[in-house]
């Protein structure tokens, strides 16, 4: 049985249904899988999570979570899922411990009963357990919200953009926590606009304006990219970009860290490529064939 199964979900907003948030979305998540929904703001990630956590009704299509229907069996689902919304939604005027106690009580359990599950995360904020949640730093709020979402030992955990606006160090730590949770057998659906986080998931769905662009393992997504891709660099990057953009052989070129990534229509030998780059930009250039990463794949899928 799949932990989550989504079948042809459509969701629109507005009086005349003029805004389409999700256009015929289907995918499946296996038990204990760490599944990433990767896409920019406005892709439909939050609508999807709210439908799966029974907080929003789809226009059409159906979905199950842990084998239960999101419409018919909403009460069952609410007992079994943990949900961490993108916006901090705990009680700001309750202390850290009071918040956790509150959520434990609601689900008819105690902190002690499931302490082993949250220990790893909660221990980091336990020294501040008497502090009001509203007075916590961003990183600590995130850890408290995750602890509260886990306190009833859910079978499926939904994390809506847990790392948005979080610095690179805290993001790495957060993903390490997720890995350890997954080892405890919890299925995790996590959404993120950061493409580099895709590589940390077992499988990912790339999503853009309500449509799934691709579903695969991170490696599989990269392997599907068949175009010749080169990294190029010169002392004048802006000029290099503008001049290469005009060439017929070039399908796409865009900045990529210290390099530009150059996508060719047909592959050619390095010497030949160096030759014609030098014609337009005589300054020293570096040319290297590179493997695409998820962001290259996303850009290519977006433009298709």
């Amino acid at each position: 049985m799949n932990a989550v199964r989504v079948n042809s979900i459509i969701k629109t907003y507005g009086k005349k249904k003029e805004i389409t948030a999700l256009q015929d979305i289907s995918f499946e998540v296996k038990p204990s899988e760490l599944y990433g929904i990767i896409g920019p703001d406005g892709a439909g990630k939050t609508s999807l999570f709210r439908i799966l956590t029974t907080l929003l009704l789809a226009d059409s299509g159906n979905a199950t979570v842990d084998g239960f229907d999101v419409v018919k069996d909403y009460k069952e689902i609410r007992k079994r899922v943990g949900y961490m919304p993108g916006k901090f939604s705990l009680y700001q005027d309750l202390s850290v411990e009071e918040n956790l106690n509150f959520f434990a009580t609601i689900f008819n359990t105690t902190i002690r009963e499931n302490y082993d599950l949250i220990k790893d995360i909660y221990q980091q904020i336990e020294p501040f357990k008497d502090r009001k949640a509203g007075k916590l730093s961003g990183g600590m709020k995130q850890k408290l919200a995750l602890s509260c979402a886990l306190i009833h030992r859910p079978s499926v955990l939904f994390l809506d953009e847990p790392t948005t606006g979080v610095d690179a160090v805290s993001r790495k730590e957060f993903w390490e926590m997720l890995k350890r949770l997954k080892e405890q057998g919890i299925t995790i659906l996590v959404s993120t606009p950061y493409m580099d986080e895709a590589g940390l998931c077992d499988r990912v769905a790339l999503i853009q304006t309500g449509k799934i662009l691709s579903i695969n393992t991170p490696q599989g997504i990269v392997d599907d990219y068949k175009k010749p891709l080169w990294a190029v660099k010169s002392p004048n990057m802006l000029q290099l970009l503008n001049e290469l953009k005009e060439r017929n052989e070039v399908e796409d070129i865009y900045p990529f860290g210290e390099y530009h990534h150059l996508v060719l229509k047909n592959n050619i030998k390095r010497e030949e490529l160096e030759q014609w780059i030098k014609q337009s930009t005589p300054e020293a250039v570096t040319v290297e064939a590179v493997r695409p990463d998820i962001e290259d794949c996303f850009i290519s899928l977006m433009k298709n």
């Binding site: 896409g39 920019p40 703001d41 953009e161 948005t164 606006g165 606009p193 493409m195 853009q208 802006l238 865009y254 900045p255 962001e295 996303f298 850009i299 977006m302 433009k303």
Partner: peptide
């Protein structure tokens, strides 16, 4: 202040072109 948070990779690059 974090002008490109949550923006898709193509728009993020167009935004940087405007910065340049």
């Amino acid at each position: 202040d974090e002008p490109t948070g949550g923006v898709d990779p193509v728009t993020r690059r167009e935004f940087w072109n405007m910065i340049y």
